[in-house]
Design a protein around this nucleic acid. Structure first.
Length: 279
DNA sequence: AATTGCCACAACCGCAACCAT
DNA sequence: CATGGTTGCGGTTGTGGCAAT
């Protein structure tokens, strides 16, 4: 089972040989001709089997490169153009909640890829927060003034909206709560989420991977009619919406209740939220 | 007009989880 | 259960375009 903390765990198996280092494999920017070949091939034969796709399609690229090109650029669902202010606002909120989990964030922003959001964060939002005296990693003030009760706010409207929630306390509560919710999805079993079984092979998504997968497929399912997890995913979407709803952040002290009720809405038995280490 | 520096974004790399055998 | 192959994620790098000098 994939969980959020395991990324830091010791690698137990040998790393596969990098596919992009082979001789005769083209690297660097894609040409329009290559794009056309890849897009036409995937239209005809579908995604997947990336390792062997280049050979089958007649491309001198590694499978990884083909996958990336398709996912981040050629897919019909990929939205081009500037990030809109409402998208930026959503990115900020989701980042505050989820941290650098770009694929999760992208899963909530239709048409945007994880790479695009990551780039946008690193080139725009990170600097923006820093210029506002906010640590982009923690969403806390970079230079907190112990003598001042005034705490910086966050978000695109933070300077213009005097009613914005205070950052420091809420950031602490937000991240702890988010972490607990997400981690809860890694330690519960399917019995605790009887209604949350994906039909796409993701098994139950109380584990992170299914969680992730369900989110990622959210947009695609609009185009791919064969997705079967609509009901469960809609339920989860509502849940995550509630997490990123600013109203929830306005009352950090009621986070527990917010999250608990949300989890209850999924049919989770009580107690799961107590199984975390808050440290 | 040529050069330099900066910025934005596409692409690559390494790692870890998943899956099949 | 162990192992090898595949896929996906996040961090980082490379490169083209543009503005400033």
């Amino acid at each position: 089972m994939r969980n959020l903390s395991s990324r830091n765990s010791t690698r137990s198996r040998s790393t596969p040989t990098p596919c992009c280092g082979k001789v005769g494999i083209k690297r660097g920017p894609w040409t329009p001709e290559e794009d056309e070949i890849l897009a036409n091939y995937i239209k005809k034969d579908g995604e997947g089997r990336w390792r062997t796709l280049p050979k089958r399609a007649g491309l001198l690229r590694c499978g990884k490169s083909c996958r990336l090109r398709w996912m981040n650029y050629l897919r019909p669902s990929v939205k081009r153009g500037r990030i809109a202010p409402d998208e930026e606002d959503l990115i900020l909120r989701l980042h505050r909640l989820l941290g650098n989990r770009w694929s999760l964030i992208a899963g909530r922003i239709p048409g945007r890829t994880d790479n695009e959001i990551k780039n946008y964060w690193n080139t725009h939002l990170r600097k923006k927060l820093i210029s506002q005296g906010i640590d982009p990693r923690t969403h806390k003030p970079l230079y907190p003034n112990p003598n001042s009760s005034e705490i910086a706010n966050i978000g695109p409207t933070q300077n213009s909206n005097p009613n914005s929630f205070p950052l420091e306390e809420n950031a602490r509560v937000d991240r702890a709560a988010a972490t607990r919710v997400i981690e809860s999805l890694t330690i519960t079993n399917s019995d605790q989420f009887p209604n949350l079984v994906f039909d796409d092979g993701a098994k139950t998504w109380p584990n992170c991977d299914g969680f992730n997968k369900g989110l990622q497929s959210h947009h695609e399912q609009n185009k791919e009619e064969d997705y079967n997890g609509n009901e469960n995913e809609d339920t989860f979407s509502l849940f995550l919406d509630s997490l990123i709803n600013e109203n929830a952040f306005h009352h950090g002290s009621i986070w527990e209740a917010e999250v608990t009720s949300s989890m209850a809405a999924f049919g989770e038995k009580d107690g799961a939220l107590n199984s975390y280490d808050l440290a």
